[in-house]
Amino acid sequence: MGFSKTQLIGLRADDFRHPLDLQATTALKQLPGLDILVRSLLGPVAEQFFYLNNIASSILVGKNQLPHLHKLLLEACQILDLEPPQLYVQQNPIPNAYTFAMRGKQPFIVLHTSLIEMLTPEEIQAVMAHELGHLKCEHGVYLTLVNIVVLAAGLLPSWGAVIAQSLREQLLQWVRCAEFSCDRAALLAIQDPKVVMSVLMKLTGGSPTLAPQLNLDAFIEQARAYDAISETELGQMLKTAQTAQLTHPVPVLRAREIDRWASSQDYQRLLQRRQIEYNQKADSKGGWRNW
């Protein structure tokens, strides 16, 4: 990581939360009893299930186990002003990463081996920071429900399936919006938009052999072409239908969003404000800036 990064002491989720995330989260909070249902009934079961799965079939990363990954996690947590969660590496041919957290419990992040093999160390840290964004924004309760409802929607009969499908659509809409906030967390940790966009590019069409050959500038142009499709009513309708059942926005859209935010005054002001506050605290402590 070739340059000194701004450490974001006192960073709050609302400093970087995407407006669509805020809007979708507010809508979910209007559903009575949803939060209590997950915390009291579904959450503890899911938490125990995932914990046992990780202990049984994943590698717990630490200072004595894959220490290079442990160091990347600690650096990202330090920049984002967040307590480190547990980090697991799991053998899986599908490139993916996910997080689980119920407030007050032990959160964790899981990285698949195929994802690690495809990315550079800085890109791996960007993925970690994206997952840390879920923790920073306290997405854990609804993320748990997304996983449960997506799995259960096809199993419920008659009227139960109708209710589940309606809730499923609302939750999928929320999680797609939440991903934009987490991409911003990745940018705040890495502080180079090209690294974040490179991760998205490799998730779109990469592999350990193809990844080094991909052209980021061409991918950014591709993202702009995706935007142009919205200029017609038919194009907009097709895009909506394409994404309705996805848990993530399409990668080109995420790349476009992070490119825009990285160029915004809001992003620059946030880094500058946090740098000033960090320097002031450093000076008051006798100069502990070099970490």
Rank of each mutant, 00 (worst) to 15 (best):
E169A: 09
T99M: 07
L172N: 02
V141Q: 14
V89R: 00
G140V: 12
C137H: 08
L119D: 13
C137V: 09
C77Y: 02
M102L: 15
G140H: 06
H139W: 08
N96T: 06
L73T: 11
L69Q: 02
L151Y: 09
V149N: 06
L111M: 13
L132T: 12
A97Q: 11
A153N: 10
G154F: 06
L167E: 00
L132V: 10
N96Y: 14
A186E: 10
L73R: 02
C182R: 00
Q165N: 14
Q91P: 06
Y142L: 11
Q165E: 06
P95A: 03
I79D: 05
T99E: 00
V110N: 08
M128E: 06
L115Y: 09
L72C: 11
Q125P: 04
T144P: 01
R184A: 13
V162K: 03
L60C: 10
Q78D: 15
F180H: 08
N147D: 14
S166K: 07
Y142F: 15
V162G: 00
S181Y: 03
V146I: 15
V141Y: 10
R168M: 08
D183F: 05
S114A: 12
L111G: 03
K136E: 00
L119E: 11
E117R: 12
L132G: 11
L72R: 11
P84Y: 04
G62T: 09
G160V: 02
T99P: 07
Y142H: 13
A76W: 09
L72N: 13
G160C: 01
H68C: 03
P121S: 08
D81K: 09
D183Y: 14
V150C: 12
R103G: 05
V175D: 00
L74M: 13
L172W: 08
G133K: 10
F100R: 01
Q86M: 13
L87D: 06
L73A: 10
V149A: 01
L151V: 03
Y88V: 05
L171G: 02
V149G: 01
Y142V: 10
L73M: 15
L72K: 10
L111F: 00
C177Q: 12
I109Q: 04
A153Y: 02
Q106E: 07
N96S: 05
A186Y: 03
Q65R: 07
T120V: 01
V61W: 01
Q65C: 14
G104W: 13
A178Q: 09
